[in-house]
Nucleic acid binder design. Structure first.
Lengths: 225, 225
DNA sequence: TTTAAACTATGATAATTGTCATGATTTTCT
DNA sequence: AGAAAATCATGACAATTATCATAGTTTAAA
């Protein structure tokens, strides 16, 4: 079993501020867990006993709404910590976490995390900065949702996926989301997402090959009105 | 000039975890500032040199959007810390802060706050929990924005104002926001906010006296479809 | 106090988005 | 391979919301 010190994901979050001693402790109590596409890591309103660090794959954080639809609040890629907020607040989850593709997670018990927050000032401050950043993003998303059209939001969702998860050698997005996934991110009806993607295609802003999407004209896509 | 130890606002935020010594230091370097209704405390994209604690009155945190309209992200009442996120991230502000009515703020230099975060574990953890809570709220707002109608959001804005800022003896909301303010919170056109408030009035869910609003039937208002 | 400015109100109409329906296409499973 | 299920696509229509216009009301200021 690989040690935390060698884990790539570790470089990407607060864990990198831990000392060798602390990392050994984490390594001793952590567990690696695999989830297949579509599997639920945890649901809403659950008490978590630890946090999950994404080592491979992508998870979506979603919330079920009154009308029965899921809204995807954010996507968590390599290095992201899932469940951090709930553990810090000592509250039940308010979102559920679902594997968007096959996923490898590293589970670290809550006490280990909280212990390090208490004892390692640098770690604690890093977590603080992380949350501050998440907050900034959430507020930004809120404003986008309030003020931009579905078309704009969808175009931004495409560039978001591209910027965060990259593209293949021939320019297709690395991550293939269904139209329903996009609709859930953008906060619209699936049909609307489909329709607008069709428009983008007709306008030559994107092209598709099966489920794959290629962003053709990023510039125009970005300044879509 | 009043000492921090006696300040009511202090009871309401992370400051309450500071020791007497630390409070004395804060008291020594803090400054009390007054703003009149409508005055700007800071704008977007500014570097802050400290945080502001609300002692009296309410501030709104807003962001100007491409279409020239302001969106109100949240209201900050007594005890709330303004600018905390920017100071922790060491980034420019992404929102501006505006006095919604006459306001008394207590300004604490950034170094003082950051120093306490570094040295006082309890304070640091409290700030962490605060941010986690803010994050939860922001995500909740995002989902509301994505999934609820303007009518629902407006009804929730009313109960939000009531729950957070209270009502007078005769049942009117303590805080009197303009329809434009409500529109800015809800993320809609001012005319739409006006229209829906008129509807609520016709339906007997609220009543008004000039600028004042009284919630008449909270129950039905809450389950407005 | 009266005059201007800001705010509230409402109608008419357009634009956006959601919903329902119906097929085509693709993927998955056996 | 073939059937079933999921996904994608598109039309028709309804509902919601924005925009423009106009006027009444309240508030603030000269």
């Amino acid at each position: 079993m690989s040690r935390c010190e060698q884990c790539i994901a570790r470089q990407l979050n607060s864990m990198k501020t831990l000392t060798k001693e602390e990392l050994k402790e984490v390594a001793a109590c952590k567990r690696t867990i695999f989830y297949k596409k579509g599997e639920v890591i945890f649901g809403e309103n659950e008490m978590l006993s630890g946090v999950y660090c994404v080592r491979e794959g992508i998870c979506k954080m979603t919330k079920l709404s009154a009308n029965g639809k899921d809204h995807t609040v954010k996507l968590m890629g390599k290095g992201k910590l899932i469940g951090q907020r709930s553990v810090i607040s000592d509250e039940r989850t308010h979102l559920s976490a679902v594997a968007l593709n096959d996923v490898e997670l590293c589970y670290v018990p809550k006490d280990q995390i909280l212990g390090n927050i208490k004892s390692n000032q640098e770690f604690s401050f890093h977590v603080l900065q992380n949350l501050a950043q998440d907050l900034r993003e959430a507020e930004g998303d809120l404003i986008n949702m309030a003020q931009k059209s579905v078309r704009q939001r969808l175009s931004e969702a495409l560039t978001y996926v591209r910027d965060n998860f990259g593209e293949t050698a021939d320019g297709y997005l690395n991550v293939n989301l269904s139209r329903e996934d996009y609709a859930s991110i953008v906060g619209t009806a699936t049909e609307s997402a489909i329709r607008i993607l069709s428009q983008f295609k007709k306008e030559g802003l994107i092209s598709t090959a099966g489920k794959q999407i290629k962003i053709e004209k990023l510039h125009e896509l970005k300044r879509v009105e």
